[in-house]
């Protein structure tokens, strides 16, 4: 166990899997010579060569689809899409091909591939570069969607994703890349489909993923310190499959729920969880389920506006108090 960043954890996972399995190869824009737009793959071209670390043209539909074909042809591609905002160009490949091939061909063949892509706002990249679109994929049967919030999970979930026999959308967050934490040195694999209790509590369940889990943790500390509210923070880690058992167990304990997400609330992850909690945990609720998410506007540029559009830990804190009070 050593301390390292989320970025280093991702690179460790890629490196270990490239060494472990000859069929694993990386493909994406600027991942080789340039070292990666966010430097996740820096140095891997030099270590593994062009066959294993393949630079592509700006051609998302083309190379993402080629990843699907390569997976069908016996390889284990890890395709990097520079940001989730660019993934829309390759949407047909993901939704119509990757997600459907195993099913529509009656199980004749699968697509064991990983699509790594960062998203999120907070660094002034504006409307077309700041989106949280992971929920679109989470609503698509046939895909797996994971979103780590810590360096350890970044490593463990990426390794699990590369070993998965189904297509995985691996959602990273731009604002987490420099976060530090303990990273297990060993062959560390985190099972897909298991949520994690990041902080135990008894008064309120706070459910989130990715960057919002870190902000929720910060808010939870203040809730305890200044408001006497003990919040349990559930990190979903996997959006599809969703670990509802862990959510339900927490709700039965705290009887209060706040869902936090960076993306738009309408038809979102919190909406899904709130519906299922209402359906399956109604008798355990002492107050309505509350949600907080990104403002439903294209992300503005100016810093005060961008901040106003994102759930900050202060606003999460306020929402948590309301969720606990039931008002």
């Amino acid at each position: 166990m050593a301390e390292g960043t989320y970025r280093q954890a991702l690179q460790q996972a890629l490196r270990e899997e490239l060494i472990r399995d000859e069929r694993v190869f990386l493909m994406g824009e600027e991942i080789g010579l340039f070292g990666g737009s966010y430097k996740i793959t820096d140095g891997l071209l030099q270590e593994f060569g062009e066959k294993r670390v393949r630079d592509t043209p700006i051609s998302e539909e083309g190379f993402l689809g080629a990843g699907i074909g390569a997976a069908m042809g016996g390889l284990r591609p890890v395709v990097e899409i520079m940001t989730i905002n660019f993934i829309l160009i390759a949407m047909d490949q993901i939704v119509n091909n990757a997600a459907k091939i195993r099913y529509m061909f009656g199980g004749a063949i699968g697509v064991p591939m990983v699509i790594r892509t960062p998203g999120g706002a907070g660094v002034g990249l504006t409307a077309q570069h700041s989106q949280s679109l992971e929920v679109w994929f989470a609503s698509t049967p046939g895909l797996i969607v994971v979103a780590p919030s810590t360096p350890a999970d970044a490593k463990g979930l990426l390794k699990a994703s590369i070993r998965s026999n189904d297509p995985v959308l691996f959602y990273e967050h731009l604002m987490l890349y420099n976060d530090k934490g303990e990273i297990p040195d060993e062959d560390y694999v985190v099972p897909i489909g298991k949520a994690e209790i990041r902080r135990p509590g008894k008064d309120l369940t706070m459910i989130s993923h990715s960057l919002m889990t870190q902000r929720s943790l910060k808010a939870a500390e203040e809730l305890e310190r200044n408001h006497g509210i003990s919040a349990e923070v559930v990190d979903l880690r996997s959006l599809r499959p969703l670990d509802f058992d862990t959510i339900a167990a927490s709700v039965r304990k705290t009887n209060h729920v706040l869902c936090i997400e960076e993306g738009w609330l309408s038809y979102g992850i919190g909406a899904e969880i709130a519906a299922r909690v209402a359906d399956e945990c109604f008798d355990w609720l002492d107050a309505p389920v509350k949600r907080i998410g990104g403002a439903e506007v294209p992300m503005p540029y100016s810093k005060p506006l961008e901040s106003a559009a994102m759930p900050s830990h202060e606003r999460i804190l306020e929402a948590a108090i309301r969720a606990r009070r039931g008002s």
Binding site: E61, G62, G65, I68, G69, A70, M72, G73, G74, D92
Partner: peptide, 19 residues
């Protein structure tokens, strides 16, 4: 989907080449 499988063909060929 019209032309949606062409990238897959490139990938199948890439796999053949790789292996």
């Amino acid at each position: 989907i019209v032309a949606g499988h062409l990238p897959l063909a490139a990938g199948l060929a890439l796999a053949a080449d790789y292996l």
